[in-house]
Design a protein around this nucleic acid. Structure first.
Lengths: 205, 205
DNA sequence: ATCTGTGAAGCACTTCACAGCG
DNA sequence: CGCTGTGAAGTGCTTCACAGAT
């Protein structure tokens, strides 16, 4: 659960570095992230001693350490399954590459899309998924297929040895232990917010 | 934190209903969702007594109750800010409307996009945001603008009285109490998975 | 016999508070 | 004097286990 927060710290530190700040205290970092200073110190102490008493943390040094701890110091290769509207938006999204996450393979079932060149890569048929990933393995699978077939695709990715999956399909996933599946699910977020909206409708708390 | 899980239960129940199952036990529901039966019973008991001892829960009745509790029994009106590539993918995404979440207004700064008709709505200039939301209020704001201006847009939405925001920008948000902001942040999810991938690289746990 | 609803126990994460270093 | 690192205390969520209902 510490690991849930470390990327947030890394992001804030990257911004501080960009702003030219050299040193930051747990109090200042905590204020930016709305996290208590004690939480930050505890989280960091789990991995080492990165601060200087009386001064705080060196922004660049701590960022470098966090990137090492999190594995953000390398390039990660990803395969996209599903190149419909959502899949194309994911392909065109410019936010992955600068963080070291590159989509190097893409698959779909639709014959109108299979064979097309999109950016630097060619969309293959899903039937080629297993041989293609055997020939050129990836670290992460991105599932952007309709809900009805998402579990099958996830199973196929698991068979290919993929250990991390970013799942855009709104389904509860079955997976063996040792495989990480993370959801990206805006509808779920909306449904959670609806509860709070309902309460707020009558402003009398 | 109970509220985080209820939408998952509702989703699973909707599927069970679609499959024609009439009754479900906490054990069966728990197995589908990878949640302990005790957790489910405890969560539900917080809002009432919906089950029959010795039998389980009536699928349709429980689903209806959950939809009421969560506020999923109504239509929610949303405004989209930012109609770039990401924003257009959000507009075209078919998953919101069936769940009662409708985008009824859209705004951008780009003069090439402002004025365009996309589906049933016309993209307005962000300068019109505050008057437009005053004239036709929405329940939820969707922020799909670049990170650098996301906080400004969130502040503007808060000024307009918007109490719930779905935020696609990768920034730590500042917001007053009483406003719910939920992130949709695939990069954060990837960065969290990277940590586990790093450990898995050497399969010797 | 089966499965819910729930107090009580257990566990995990968070915050406190202070010794110790710069 | 300021701020980190950390045991200890506190808080809240999860699981247990069983009485009770069908």
């Amino acid at each position: 659960m510490v690991v849930e927060r470390l990327p947030l710290y890394a992001r804030a530190l990257a911004l501080l570095q960009y702003e030219g700040q050299e040193v930051v205290s747990s109090a200042e970092l905590g204020e930016r992230l709305r996290v208590t200073p004690a939480q930050i110190r505890k989280d960091l102490s789990y991995f080492g001693r990165f601060g200087k008493q009386g001064r705080g943390y060196n922004v660049s040094k701590l960022l470098e350490e966090l990137r090492l701890i999190l594995g953000l110091d390398r390039q990660w290769r990803m395969a996209l399954i599903g190149v419909g509207k959502l899949g194309r938006a994911i392909l065109e999204y410019g936010g992955f590459a600068p963080q070291g996450f590159r989509i190097v393979q893409a698959f779909d079932v639709n014959p109108d899309i299979v064979g097309k060149e999109l950016g630097a890569l060619v969309v293959r048929d899903v039937s080629e998924l297993e041989p293609a990933l055997a020939a050129e393995p990836v670290d992460i699978g991105i599932v952007a297929v309709p809900a009805q077939v998402a579990q099958q695709i996830i199973d196929a990715l698991v068979r290919c040895g993929v250990k991390a999956i970013l799942n855009y399909a709104p389904i509860p996933v079955h997976k063996p232990p040792g495989v990480e599946v993370r959801p990206v699910d805006p509808v779920l977020q909306l449904q959670r917010m609806a509860y709070y909206l309902k309460s707020l409708a009558i402003p009398t708390k």
